[in-house]
């Protein structure tokens, strides 16, 4: 399912949290976009997002899609990073009942999923509790 080109083109975002910052209005696009949704500018500079933030909302996934079934139950939340960008990510290395809205987290580099037995290993970001 995950063909290599499709996976590889997302690497800057998933491995290094690279985003596009609009040079006109300062809007941060993650992932990068071609046009700013706020001011319609097409000029962006590449920045690295903050790797710390807080939990805005979360859930525990107990019934998952096939490729995540070995990981269940696992937590997924929406994290607001310190620069205001929001991302959806797993919250790991914690007892599930310790997770609360408002708690601080740090973004780390982890394996996300495997594409079957013979496919590529897929990496990206997850959050750990601070």
């Amino acid at each position: 399912m995950k063909n290599v080109a499709r996976y590889q083109r997302e690497i800057p975002q998933r491995y290094r949290l690279e985003a596009g910052k609009c040079t006109s209005c300062g809007y941060i696009a993650f992932p990068p976009r071609l046009i700013c949704p706020k001011c319609k500018s097409k000029n962006f500079e590449t920045i690295k997002l903050s790797d710390e933030g807080k939990i805005l909302t979360f859930t525990i996934i107990r019934v998952s899609a096939e490729q995540f079934s070995k990981q269940t139950p696992f937590a997924v939340g929406i994290i607001e990073l310190n620069d205001g960008v929001k991302i959806t990510t797993q919250i790991v290395d914690t007892e599930l009942d310790k997770i609360e809205i408002g708690k601080k987290v740090k973004i780390v580099f982890r394996k996300i999923q495997e594409d079957g037995h013979a496919g590529i290993l897929c990496y990206g970001y997850k959050a750990i509790m601070l």
Binding site: I61, A65, F68, Q71, V76, I112
Partner: peptide, 11 residues
């Protein structure tokens, strides 16, 4: 950027 992380629709 959502489904890749393991989120489902109920999620």
């Amino acid at each position: 950027y959502e489904v890749y992380q393991g989120i489902t629709f109920p999620g």
